[in-house]
Design a protein around this nucleic acid. Structure first.
Lengths: 168, 168
DNA sequence: TATTGTTATACTCTATAACTATA
DNA sequence: TATAGTTATAGAGTATAACAATA
């Protein structure tokens, strides 16, 4: 009789890989980024409330809160969300009274966004969920390694031109 | 008159961030992983052939090629794809004669997968696309930094128990 | 004529649960 | 009774192009 998946996890303390070979993909940054993100996504999914914000929604709402009056198009560009998709997210936020849309007189083609009290409340409620400790599948990485990882990811994403010079 | 997006990119040599503030998210590994992956995804999309393999499909096919006889379920588990979704991908591969499904006599509930000549051909055709140089949005990272990033991502994903001991 | 955002549409992906076959 | 994979279905997300309003 074969050993069950659960028994394997108990025995080896991690996900068994069943002899799978990744070959060159082990050195493919894009592949590793995708796999790591899917891992985080699955972890969030398992621990999340049924009808809370999605990861994309939380991020969008967070940046609006941090950048009052941000332009909708700039938000879409920075977060790699297509304008058409952003329109739906923002309209949904508006329906839920999480954000306010404002069309300025200076350029009436643009839309500027600000957070509303209910939006801030949603952020506060979901913060613990999205800031929670990360579950790594392999050996848990140390705080220093995670800081290194974050630093390299910020460089990769071009996010190192913001914040204090002492920023890790 | 406002400076165009393109002019800004030319002037500053990178994507303008329009004063967007990411705040705490700059230290949220999950957020950074998602953003970095979306960046790679967008880059692949812009350079890709209209009807080639998706990133997920390329990875699945690659691992099947590297691990002849791999079980369909193990593949799904390792790549964070739900069994129901994997069934459709594999059926599609079978229709295109890229892989062969084999139900072994030992356990007739399972499905074992091997690559076929057309599958190997597809991999060869797409290799350059998915292994291509990565476009970073910020300062391009050095080869050493990318190696560090890959190493940390492998640790994060629990992928460091495979391969040669001299593996970077 | 270019830009911003919206609409419409089709398509892909995803999640969930029920189901079949096998162990 | 448990497991592997399949099917069915609804929902979420994505890509594309056409469009209206504004600059």
């Amino acid at each position: 009789m074969q050993e069950t998946e659960l028994a394997e996890v108990r025995r080896y303390g991690m996900m068994p890989n069943h002899g799978l070979q990744f070959g060159d993909m082990r050195h493919n940054t894009g592949f590793l980024l995708r796999l790591a993100w899917l891992q985080v996504h699955q972890s969030l999914e398992q621990n999340g409330q049924p009808h809370g914000l999605t990861a994309a929604e939380y991020t969008i709402l967070h940046v609006i809160a941090q950048t009052p009056g941000v332009r909708q198009g700039h938000l879409a560009q920075a977060l790699y969300i297509k304008p058409a998709a952003m329109t739906r997210v923002i309209r949904n936020f508006e329906d839920l009274e999480l954000v306010e849309r404002h069309v300025p007189d200076g350029d009436r083609r643009t839309v500027r966004l600000t957070i509303k009290p209910k939006g801030q409340q949603s952020l506060d409620q979901e913060r613990a969920h999205f800031s929670g400790a990360l579950h790594t599948v392999g050996t848990p990485i140390s705080a220093e390694e995670q800081a290194d990882l974050n630093h390299l990811l910020r460089r990769f994403c071009g996010l190192n031109h913001e914040g204090a010079p002492t920023d890790v």
